[in-house]
Design a protein around this nucleic acid. Structure first.
Lengths: 223, 223
DNA sequence: ACCTGAACACCGTTCAAGT
DNA sequence: ACCTGAACACCGTTCAAGT
């Protein structure tokens, strides 16, 4: 655990992320992060103002990991790539989603993403309203999907989805429709809940494409 | 604060919800819930096994408030109603979303919703796969939307969306596309971010409808 | 300048004690 | 049967003290 080195803001946040990955956000305390760095809790206060400030930085740390698509990329690919990157990052650090609600402001890394995506959508001819709809919908879907997925007792793609069926089976009488649906789903043996991500995202992107085709001029962009 | 009455599991969870509504989930402690009921913290242990168990019940409390559409309702209306009810409940108690990530199992009230919705979708001719896609997508969108909305410094419909514009304006040079987009958005004076909920949901429902039209038999249902 | 030990007011929880 | 007070091991944070 103790890795003797100079302390720094960055090293503290990295250590906090490691502690959170290991034991969840509840296990992140000034003392646990300190000991992850081989240092007393009080030493951290030279680099972070408070635990709250440390958690704000930790939240930023997660969202900064989400990839911003390259400049030349077509709008649909850009939304697709961002959605997949966000899903990957947030699945690896689910505590990031749990933190969102409790800290008010969007933070620099999220604003940076908004800005980049608005640039892609604007140059593809989106109006401001449609660009907002598109981005907000895809973002909401991704966040919500990862949140839902993380609370289902399923390992994506491993076929372990059976577990849920078994859990519901315990009182199949209480959940007749759910039971019927799950047994049909698993009859093929190839079903994976993770595939719903692609399915839902595709519906959204096609809906956005139709609306784009139905509208005229985009919003003006700065040079 | 102290309201002298017999203690009970239900009264404890209600009190915990009141404390959370007032000061966020972080303010919920055995001592604060106790004093909300005019009782010592230790008294609660006669009705809840632990704080963790109390929070599990609190999470259930939120999701149980989401309305289940009536049996006869057409599928599209059922999804629409559930989405709006979920948004309303979760917006009123945003701490519920923040709790989702940290507690593993879906819980009875969520399973009950899954079951009811599967019943509606099945009788409308949905296959098991499409029903799952439909429900998972709408749910993910709703959860994610409320999560996003709760972290934007905007009062829905009050026109206070200007605040975000001002915040970004502080460093407009860093966020040129976002700034351009926001100024077009607010030019009309009638824009409200809350409207994106209807917009995104409509895209999803129309996409689902198209897929439904493109597929044949639904999954078998119990009598 | 950077780290720490002791101290304070909190927290969840146990347990023996009150009524 | 139901509630409590004292106690324990934790927590965030302050501050004076070490090097």
């Amino acid at each position: 655990m103790p890795e003797k080195l100079r302390l720094s803001h960055e090293r503290i946040i990295d250590a906090a992320a490691r502690v959170a990955d290991r034991g969840g956000i509840a296990s992140v305390s000034m003392r646990s992060v300190g000991s992850e760095l081989g240092v007393e809790a009080m030493s951290l206060y030279h680099y972070v103002a408070s635990k709250e400030a440390m958690l704000d930085a930790l939240s930023e740390w997660v969202f900064a990991k989400i990839a911003i698509p390259q400049a030349g990329v077509p709008w649909r690919q850009a939304l697709w790539e961002r959605a997949h990157s966000a899903r990957e990052v947030l699945s690896a650090h689910t505590w990031g989603l749990g933190m969102m609600e409790s800290r008010a402001a969007p933070g620099m890394s999220r604003l940076r993403h908004y800005d980049a995506m608005m640039g892609r959508l604007a140059s593809a001819g989106f109006s401001a309203a449609l660009a907002t709809t598109a981005f907000a919908s895809v973002d909401a879907f991704v966040f919500g999907f990862v949140l839902t997925e993380s609370t289902l007792p399923l390992e994506a793609g491993s076929g372990a989805e059976q577990q849920l069926a078994e859990a519901a089976d315990l009182n199949a009488a209480d959940f007749p429709h759910l039971t019927a649906m799950l047994s049909e789903l698993f009859a093929s043996g190839t079903y994976s809940f993770g595939d719903e991500f692609q399915a839902g995202l595709t519906i959204l992107l096609e809906g956005i494409e139709q609306r784009l085709a139905g509208e005229g001029a985009g919003f003006s962009q700065p040079s």
